[in-house]
Design a protein around this nucleic acid. Sequence first.
DNA 1: CTTTTTCCCTGGACGC
DNA 2: TGCGTCCAGGGAAAAA
Length: 282
Amino acid sequence: VPELPEVETIRLGLTPVLMGKRLDEVRILDARLTRPEPPEEVEARLTGQRVETVLRRGKYLIFELSSGDHLLVHLRMTGSFRYGGTDLSADPYVRAVVRLDDGSDVAYRDVRRFGTWLVIEGDDLGDYLATRLGPEPFAATFTAASLAASLAGRRAPVKAVLLDQRTVAGIGNIYADEALWRARVAPERAGLTLDAAEVKALHRGVRAALRAGIDRQGATLRDYRDPSGASGTMQDEFRVYGRDGAPCPRCRTTITKTRIGGRGTWFCPACQRADNALGRRR
DNA sequence: CTTTTTCCCTGGACGC
DNA sequence: TGCGTCCAGGGAAAAA
C-alpha cells in the first residue's frame, strides 16, 4: 500500500532514470488508467516530451514535462513502477509502458487497477492539488496549530481526520495507526476531544512514523516494490499495524484490532488512552 | 458544511 | 479440489 514513504522511495528511484529523458513512445494498455480521458489523448500529450523533474506531493507522483504539462500518477492500492531487471513482457498486470530516448523501458504495473494517470496543464496543477491536499508533513506549514485547526469541531474519529488528505498530505491506513500509537492517542477518539498536549504529540507522531518509513524505503506487505524491484523494510518495524495478538512494544499489553471508518485499525488499548484527563475528570 | 456509505478492482486466505 | 465469502483500502461520488 503506497503511502508517503513508499511514494517518496519510488520518486527517488525514478529520478535518475527519467530526469532529462525524452518519452519516445507511450503505450497505455488499460483504458481505466486515464479515465475519463481516452488513453490515446494522454499518450499524445506525453509522447515526445522530456521529463524535467520528478516530484511528489502527498501520495501523488508528479512528472514535470518540457511542454509545461504535468503527469500526475496516483498508485492507489497496488500501482508500481519497474525499471530494468526481469522481463515484464508476459506480465498481465503491466498497464502502461514508456520507452525512453536511450531505448530503455519504464513499466507501470497495477494488479487492482485503482491507479490513475492524469495530465494537467501547468497553470492548473496548483489548484488541483490545493483543493485536495493539506500541508506536506515535513513542511513548515504543518504545525501543531494547523493540526489543531483540522481537529477542531470534528466529531469524526481522530484516525479519520488523519486519513483526510486535507489535514496533512500522504498518510494512509498504516502510518495513521503508527502515528497514533506514537502519540499514545486511541484512534476512535473524536477529533475535538484532543487537548493541546495530545495534538502536539500527534504532530510529532505523524512526522516520526513517516520519517521511519522513509528511512526504511517503505513497507512491503503484498505488492509494494521500488522501481528496481527491491522491498522496503518498514514492515519489520511496525509497532501496531497488523499486529493483533502481539504485545505492545511499549507496555506489553496485547494489541487489539478494530474497525474505524471501514478500515482495519490496530492499537494498544492500554497505552493509547480512549479519553484524556479532562474527559475523565468530568 | 460534515459524516456516512457505496463503488471500483483482484488475489489470497479461509470455511465447508 | 472447488466454490462461496470476506478482506485488503485510497479516493471519488452519492447519500444522508
